[in-house]
């Protein structure tokens, strides 16, 4: 965004509207989740036990902390403390990376045990349990893609700050990037209990 939009509030409103579309995008999957949970409560209970709550909790803490740093980065830039803003932004991105690495090991372990949709090992499981994992992979997968996009966007914003295209006088890009990142956190706040804690 090299040319400055004249309208700060308008740019922010546009970002919020975009976030709504993200919420509704996941919303379709939440519809599927809600219906399937209502249909197979016992199977979901059982399948949920197979997920590693410790891993999930760690990732929750990582993402909430990352979200904190994103919020701090915006405040720092508003206070014209560019150095701090950049450090906070880097910390945000690093924690996003930690989240992904964690997720990689988690998925890897599950897939290593033959627990993935279409795997012959789970073909004779109760349908509800299979559905749990189909939804688990779809939703955390889509969430993971959002993490990757978020990292790229925040990285780009870092570069903009470096180039002084995102400044204490013109911080809307960072603010909008932060909004996006909080949304990714927000979705995880729901995914975490729905998959890890209903055991």
């Amino acid at each position: 965004m090299s040319e400055h939009p004249k309208d700060y509030l308008g740019a922010k409103m546009g970002m919020w509207l975009f976030l709504f579309t993200e919420i509704l995008l996941f919303g379709g999957l939440f519809v599927l989740y809600a219906v399937t949970l209502q249909r197979y409560p016992a199977e979901f209970h059982e399948a949920s036990k197979m997920l590693d709550t410790t891993m999930g909790t760690i990732n929750t803490i990582v993402l909430i902390t990352s979200s904190l740093f994103a919020a701090l980065a915006v405040t720092a830039l508003q206070k014209a403390d560019i150095k701090k803003a950049k450090i906070f932004l880097i910390l945000t991105i690093i924690l996003a990376g930690v989240f992904l690495v964690n997720k990689y090991f988690e998925w890897g372990a599950k897939i290593g045990h033959g627990i993935y949709p279409g795997s012959p090992d789970i073909a004779d499981w109760a349908p509800g349990k299979q559905a749990f994992f189909a939804l688990y992979y779809t939703m955390t997968g889509l969430h993971g893609i959002h993490i990757v996009i978020g990292m790229a966007v925040l990285g780009w914003i870092y570069w903009l700050i470096e180039k002084e295209k995102c400044t204490p006088d013109y911080f809307i890009v960072l603010e909008n990037g932060g909004l996006y990142w909080h949304l990714v956190d927000l979705i995880w706040i729901y995914l975490f209990p729905l998959y890890y804690l209903i055991a």
């Binding site: 994103a70 932060g178 909080h182 949304l183 956190d185 706040i189 729901y190 209903i198």
Partner: peptide, 23 residues
């Protein structure tokens, strides 16, 4: 079933904090 209700209620409190303050 209250487990699900409880988990979602706490999640909603957390989500509100993120939305109202962080965002």
């Amino acid at each position: 079933f209250l487990n699900v209700v409880m988990a979602l209620s706490i999640a909603t409190i957390k989500a509100s904090l993120v939305t109202f303050i962080f965002m």
